[in-house]
Amino acid sequence: MSDTDYTLAELCICACAEAWRDAGEILATGIGLIPRLAASLAYRTFSPDLLMTDGEAFLVSEPVPPGPRGDYEPKIEGWMPYRSVFENLWSGKRHAMLGPTQIDKYGQANISCIGDYAKPKAQLLGSRGFPGNTINHPNSYFVPNHGPRVFVEKCDMVGSVGYDPSAWGPGMKRDFVDLRLVVTNLAVLDFGGADNVMRLVSVHPGNSVGDISAATGFELGVADDCGETPVPTPEALDVIRNLIDPHDMRASAVLG
């Protein structure tokens, strides 16, 4: 592969990494391979002050490459068991990127279950940390399979907060809700439009605005300056291939 060829996974990693640009000294959590590699890329390029974990209970001073560890020893610099994770995230010093099963135009997302709550058609994980993450610190999402079953009019179970004004009661503090990017296998979206409703900001090469709208289960606004998602720079590709994912685990990412 030449320096200018790239895969969709590599494009997505680069697009996701932008979530952590100028993030400063906060914990970067990427759940799933692409978000994890994206956080690693951000750390290795433009956000070197990010805190990273080994995925278990240790802070590491450089991102651990996914896949077989071989002789690699994680560079431990601190301890972050789950009780510290909750203290960290409730204090706001984190930006997480997670994968929703459903997400609506307000950014409300679901990983709990599909169908009737009392007797779901498909039980999934449970709400996990979604409610706490999203009311406390910046969040972004990665969707590997952009389609109308993921981008829905209404989530079957709202686990994470969003910008739906009707969800908020009097006196509830919304100041820390900060949804940044939704990166998919087709496009990049954000909440920068009027009333923080989701909108299209760039389309990955090979797709059209119409493709994205058709794959989205609600009416999707389009940013005035919507263009094509930037392709990976040679520098980014070099970091991805040689430093953060030397075992090419990204080749196994299922996109679409």
Binding site: W90, Q108, S112, Y117, S127, F130, P131, G132, I135, N136, C155, M157, V158, G159, S160, V161, A167, W168, G169, G171, M172, K173, R174, F176
Partner: peptide, 20 residues
Amino acid sequence: TRVGLATDVQRLNTNLRTVQ
């Protein structure tokens, strides 16, 4: 806590109350 507000965790668990 703020956690749980404005989600279905609050709506589905009718035993959860708020405090000012």
